[in-house]
Design a protein around this nucleic acid. Structure first.
Length: 552
RNA sequence: GCGCCCAUAGCUCAGUUGGAUAGAGCACUUGGCUUCGAACCAAGGGGUCGGGAGUUCGAAUCUCUCUGGGCGCACCA
């Protein structure tokens, strides 16, 4: 609908110029918005306000002129009920009810496909997220990243992208050795030795569990000589499979698990450095090898190979991003916790230095999660090993509520997650509010079906005349544009807010009116409406990875 | 000290490329189930959009500055 009105306004400007009434036509950007007040119509444009100065005509006069031209345009009559000039010079559009009715039929026709488009069909996109080091279980902040990445992948698929989700595993470096040492210490402890854990050791109980497993299967086999390699590898694999299980339980699917070690094995890191060297951004200084990332907007140059010969993590990252592009992706998305935001500039710089346009890479930062219980913070300290895992949260409040809460806020604001509220099945809990709306609609459809009342080709949706019905239809008709915007901006939280609004309208409608009435024709028309509500609510919940139960 | 993010109702937060009187939920007060599910609905109060300056016909939105908070500033990962 917005598109049609915008086109109409463009045509108006062109016609105005042709007649000589206007000086400006084509290049004026056309703003269209939805007035907060119903009396101001379905859509409104401040076009006359912005154009008034250029044209040298008072806004209201200009608005009247535009409307008079508009009214003469052939195409306007098809969908516009009336046009008004209001306030300082706004042009308000009132859309014919038939447009809404047509839209409703279109939703029913398209079903689950409604709202989805093929705008970016043929484009490939890679989203990398979570990528937590396999040195411990996932905690709540990782859960937020998981929910975000998964929802984004669904959103992007809905506008046609071919999306792959990937988890990057840091299986190289000191941390693996440290992990091995940590487990080894716990292992010896199990045989009664008093052990001082290394200062940097991983201290969670999960390390003790792993040590117990080793003891159970192999007894004291590894006691005599410390074998970091074995302990590191064993711990890493155990933890990684825990992570995989948690993500699966959370309903988050990854298409690929990419090991940093493969980059080294296949010489990808040195190849990436070579590429940078060729483009002249690599130099040697102080015995180390540097990348001149400042040339691409970073605030300092970065070491990629230390003077002791070891490659830095950044070097792997450069190679990894090169590898992603080489795999044929048109766009890359990285989702990082706020504690990594300092790396954005250098990674983007590296990407640019390798000759890839930096805006093919989006880095989404999410702030951390404050876990609360009844409004009070839940103590979390990673250092002491006492932190709340994603698994614990899912087990306590369930997947649906956890996902909905994680996605309810803009990713760049910190998130308060109250376990008690998330568990409540009451109006304080937005998840149930939305799901309940779906359930109620399903319930009516069930009753209708039992009575043998079904929509058919003769169903006359033009009987839907109530203001609440028109508002519902309008809200439903916004869904395709919502998907486009949420996907374009990588902002899944918009779906949550849309759902809450739609659910509210559905609840109010449900409360105030009956769908099953004595009037069979009206009943069928209303069944059509709630069927459309069901389609959209389910579709939107799907985008969030939240279930749409038919009974609760 | 430098950089990034955030600041909107008592609390938690929405707010589209700058547009009309800034919205919702919770909390608080009051009312509503013989009805397709009350996990719901209705009514009410509540705001210098952190402060200040600027750009503009017009600013929560853009620019600058200050304050407060979070997070980064390694030849760590």
């Amino acid at each position: 609908m917005q598109g049609e009105i915008t086109a109409l306004l463009k045509a108006t400007l062109t016609e105005g110029v042709r007649r000589g009434d206007l000086k400006f036509g084509e290049d004026v950007p056309i703003v269209l918005n939805m007035p907060p007040q119903k009396e101001h119509g379905d859509y409104a444009t401040p076009l006359a306000l912005s154009l008034a100065k250029l044209e040298g005509v008072p806004p209201r006069v200009l608005a009247d002129l535009l409307v008079s031209i508009l009214n003469q345009l052939e195409s306007a009559s098809h969908f516009i009920e009336k046009i008004e000039v209001a306030g300082p010079g706004y042009i308000n559009f009132f859309i014919k009810k038939e447009v809404g009715h047509g839209h409703l039929l279109e939703i029913l026709r398209q079903g689950a496909e409604y709202g989805k488009t093929d705008l970016f069909t043929g484009k490939k996109i890679l989203i990398e997220f979570v990528s937590a080091n396999p040195t411990g279980p996932l905690h709540v902040a990782h859960g937020r990243a998981a929910a975000l990445g998964d929802a984004m992948s669904r959103l992007l698929r809905a506008i046609g992208y071919q999306v792959d989700c990937e988890y990057y595993i840091n299986d190289v470096g000191n941390q693996m050795a440290l992990l091995g040492q940590s487990t080894y210490c716990r292992y010896r402890e199990l045989f009664g030795e008093k052990i001082e854990l290394p200062a940097e050791a991983y201290q969670g109980d999960y390390i003790i569990d792993i040590a117990k497993q080793i003891k159970e299967t192999d007894g004291e086999k590894y006691l005599p000589g410390q074998d970091d390699l074995f302990f590191g590898r064993y711990s890493y694999q155990t933890i990684l499979s825990l992570i995989e299980n948690d993500l699966r339980a959370f309903g988050v699917h990854f298409d690929g698990w990419f090991c940093e070690s493969t980059l080294h094995q296949e010489n990808k890191v040195s190849e990436a450095i070579l590429l940078l060297r060729k483009s002249g951004v690599v130099y040697d200084a102080d015995g180390a090898v540097w990348a001149a990332t400042t040339r691409y907007g970073d605030d300092k140059d970065r070491v990629i190979k230390r003077s002791n010969g070891e490659l830095t993590y950044f070097a792997s990252d450069i190679a990894y991003h090169k590898n992603k592009f080489e795999r044929g992706y048109d766009r890359l998305i990285d989702i990082w916790g706020a504690d990594h935001h300092g790396y954005i500039a250098r990674v983007k710089a590296a990407v640019a230095a390798m000759g890839y346009s930096a805006d093919r890479l989006d880095i989404v930062i999410h702030q951390l999660v404050n876990l609360l219980r009844d409004g009070k913070p839940v103590a979390m300290s990673k250092r002491s090993g006492e932190f709340v895992t994603l698994k614990e949260v899912i087990e306590e409040v369930g997947v649906d509520a956890t996902r909905f809460f994680f996605l309810m806020r803009r990713s760049d604001t910190s998130l308060d997650f109250d376990l008690e509220i998330a568990k409540k099945s009451s109006d304080e809990n937005p998840v149930y509010y939305v799901q309940y709306a779906h359930t109620r609609v399903c319930s009516i459809l069930r009753v209708a079906k039992e009575q043998g009342i079904l929509m058919d080709k003769e169903t006359d949706v033009s009987l839907l005349m109530l203001p609440e019905e028109m508002e519902l239809i309008k809200q439903l008709s916004l869904y395709p544009d919502l998907i486009k915007m949420a996907a374009a901006r990588l902002e899944p939280h918009r779906i949550n807010f849309y759902l809450l609004e739609l659910a509210g309208m559905a609840h109010r409608y449900y409360y105030k009116y009956r769908v099953m009435t004595e009037d069979m024709a009206l009943t069928k028309a209303r069944l059509a409406l709630i069927s459309a509500i069901r389609i959209v609510v389910k579709s939107a919940l799907d985008l969030l990875g939240v279930s749409a139960p038919e009974r609760m």
